[in-house]
């Protein structure tokens, strides 16, 4: 049953993405930047999905510390890993975009740098988990570090903003509205890329979660094998 829902969601994601890509390909080119601007339809939703993932990781970590239910720990790992994949996608697409618009692969501006620091922090989270053997200790320490990382990211952002910025500000929802409404809908609409990517993230997280279950089963089997 659960598998069928997953397959259904996965198929829906693929259909949505095909629809969105078709739609986006039909849009006219942006005046000053040309075709490369269309990367925004995946660049921005990827960042938002990653941000959502880190928020869910925070909630799951806090819930784990309160309830000590290992389900939440599994959610935290799964969602962090998926978020890292999306953030990596965001960084790479951003870097390629920057090469055309700013002429460099990597401009050390606010969002780029804080996204990178965020990535490193959460990668540290995964490494920390891998290094701790004892399951309870691993879950507790990882949850604490996840909370730490979540607090740190806004401060990192602030500090780098003090530095200087080159990254364009948000172009959505502003009153002078340089972004056409049907383009906004292609990202944020109910059938837009953001929705598709969030669904994809959900599917991946659920798969990752079931793997975490298998991992636990494997661990207990190993213990039994040792005991014999």
């Amino acid at each position: 049953m659960r598998n069928n829902i997953l397959y259904g969601l996965g198929a829906a994601v693929i259909l949505l993405l095909v629809r969105d890509i078709n739609l986006i390909a039909g849009f006219p080119q942006e005046a000053s930047q040309g075709a490369i601007f269309k990367i925004i339809f995946f660049h921005v939703p990827m960042a938002i999905t990653a941000m959502l993932c880190s928020s869910v990781a925070l909630i799951a970590s806090v819930m784990f510390l309160i309830t000590r239910n290992f389900k939440y720990d599994a959610v935290a790992v799964a969602v962090t890993e998926v978020g890292l994949a999306f953030l990596l996608g965001n960084l790479v697409t951003g870097s390629i975009w920057a090469r055309i618009i700013w002429g460099v692969w990597w401009a050390w501006d606010v969002r780029l740098t804080s996204a990178l620091v965020c990535w490193l922090l959460y990668a540290g989270y995964l490494m920390l988990r891998r290094a701790i053997e004892e399951p309870t200790q691993r879950a507790v320490f990882a949850a604490c570090f996840s909370i730490f990382a979540f607090i740190d990211v806004p401060i990192v952002y602030l500090s780098i903003r003090l530095f200087r910025t080159q990254h364009p500000g948000p172009v959505f929802f502003t009153s002078n509205g340089s972004f056409p409404p049907d383009w906004t809908a292609a990202i944020f609409g109910p059938l837009g890329t953001l929705m598709a990517l969030m669904m994809l993230a959900t599917v991946l997280t659920v798969i990752r979660l079931s793997q975490e279950d298998s991992q636990r089963e494997l661990d207990s089997l190993r213990r039994m094998a040792h005991a014999m």
Binding site: Q33, A35, I36, I39, F42, G89, T93, I96, W97, R99
Partner: peptide, 11 residues
């Protein structure tokens, strides 16, 4: 422009 767009999406 197109070349880099395709790079980005592929990546």
């Amino acid at each position: 422009n197109y070349e880099f767009l395709s790079y980005g999406l592929t990546a």
